[in-house]
Simulated scan of single mutants.
Amino acid sequence: MSPVPAPAGRARRDVPPFGARLAAAMDANGPLCVGIDPHAALLDAWGLPDTPAGLREFSLRVVEALGGRVAAVKPQSAFFERHGSAGVAVLEETLAALRQAGTLAILDVKRGDIGSTMGGYAQAYLADDAPLAADAITLSPYLGFGSLTPALQAAAATGRGVFVLALTSNPEGAAVQHARTASGRAVAAEVVAGAAASNAAARAAGELGSVGLVVGATVGDAVRELDLDLLAAGGPLLAPGVGAQGAGAPELQAVFGPARANVLASTSRGVLKAGPTVKDLRAACGRAAAAAEAALRP
């Protein structure tokens, strides 16, 4: 899996790169991203039906509570897609509401394919006129980092970003991510190298790159064992596992070390379980943001 930097394309002059916008949002609101994960159990806990109507109420209430108060919000596409076209329509409305609130939207779709198919995904989520356009999306690089080129080009051309799966905390991930290539380097390290190559120009300019990585906050010693130079990657590090999954200040410090300043801590249930009221969601978000700030920017 050779790292292949995507051609930068022709960036829009009126939109700062995603990395710059995310860095500003993290400075203004703290290094916290809150997910919108409308599990059936969460809808029920909020007294809402597991229907498109319940989904809409849940999602727009989260936007009302958190818009303008966090660096980013991350809708999980799967929980919208399970309701079919009506659910996807709610996702479109949620993304539009986040834009209206001035809050960065990271759409968690984990797309990964090749050629024209990846180009289609890029058009669906990264084109200016796309109904599902987000500020950034998640991508899977396990058809080869170079397969992501259409999405990387589209993101660069519209001032958007991507977060590429690198090292996840699910037990099944290690079989692929920890495997060694013919060169002896871990597959996850190849992904990090690909991101670093894509972010080279931004890093040379002293800016946060727009090609981020997904690195689980609970991966423990794997970052060091696999020789992942996360600081050299030059982009933001989206860190799921904060809060409900058990990662706190010690885990974040141990996993990310000198790259902590680039980490965007991601939590979902840790904040969402405080609902359904806007007041309680904001209070839980405030606590999570303070904890992330203390752990990542001491």
Rank of each mutant, 00 (worst) to 15 (best):
Ala89Phe: 04
Phe79Ser: 07
Ala249Leu: 06
Arg160Thr: 08
Ala179Glu: 11
Thr158Asp: 04
Val70Glu: 02
Ser198Ala: 15
Arg180Thr: 11
Leu152Val: 13
Ala284Asp: 12
Leu139Thr: 09
Leu55Lys: 05
Leu148Cys: 04
Thr149Phe: 01
Ala290Gln: 15
Val215Glu: 00
Gly212Tyr: 11
Leu107Cys: 13
Val187Met: 12
Ala6Trp: 15
Gly87Gln: 11
Leu213Glu: 10
Asp27Ser: 14
Ala202Phe: 13
Gly87His: 13
Leu139Ala: 09
Ser2Asn: 14
Leu296Asn: 03
Ala105Gly: 09
Leu95Ile: 13
Gly35Tyr: 05
Gly159Ala: 00
Met118Ile: 12
Gly184Leu: 05
Leu98Phe: 14
Ala155Asp: 08
Leu60Phe: 15
Pro250Val: 08
Glu251Leu: 01
Val211Asp: 06
Val211Arg: 06
Val63Gln: 02
Gly235Met: 09
Met26Leu: 11
Glu92Phe: 03
Val215Asn: 00
Gly243Met: 07
Leu139Tyr: 04
Ala290Gly: 11
Gly173Asp: 07
Thr94Gln: 11
Val88Asp: 09
Glu93His: 10
Leu281Trp: 11
Thr277Met: 06
Asp113Gln: 10
Asn170Ala: 05
Asp27Arg: 15
Pro141Gln: 13
Val214Met: 09
Val219Asn: 01
Ala157Ser: 15
Gly206Arg: 06
Thr138Pro: 09
Ala101Cys: 04
Leu126Gly: 02
Ala244Gln: 11
Val15Cys: 01
Ala179Ser: 15
Met1Gln: 04
Phe58Ala: 03
Gly84Trp: 04
Gly173His: 04
Ala166His: 03
Arg180Ala: 15
Gly194Ala: 12
Ala96Met: 10
Val162Gly: 04
Gly248Glu: 12
Ala6Met: 03
Gly184Pro: 01
Glu64Ala: 14
Gly120Leu: 03
Ala217Ser: 08
Val15Gly: 00
Pro49Asn: 06
Asp221Val: 00
Pro236Phe: 13
Phe79Ile: 13
Ala151Leu: 08
Leu237Trp: 08
Leu167Ile: 06
Pro150His: 11
Pro240Ser: 06
Gln253Asp: 13
Leu264Ala: 07
Gly161Ser: 06
Ala133Trp: 00
Val109Phe: 09
Phe79Tyr: 15
Ala127Met: 01
Ala41Asp: 15
Ala247Gln: 09
Arg61Ser: 15
Arg111Ala: 13
Val62Ser: 01
Gly9Tyr: 03
Ala193Ser: 12
Lys74Glu: 10
Asp108Ile: 12
Leu226Thr: 00
Val263Arg: 00
Arg282Asp: 06
Ala23Glu: 10
Ala249Cys: 07
Ala40His: 09
Leu48Tyr: 03
Phe256Met: 09
Leu43Cys: 09
Ala232Ile: 08
Pro141Ile: 15
Asn170Gly: 04
Ala24Val: 00
Asn199Pro: 01
Leu22Met: 05
Gln123Val: 00
Gly241Tyr: 03
Leu148Met: 10
Arg99Gln: 14
Asp135Tyr: 03
Pro258Met: 02
Gly112Ser: 13
Lys110Glu: 12
Arg180Ile: 03
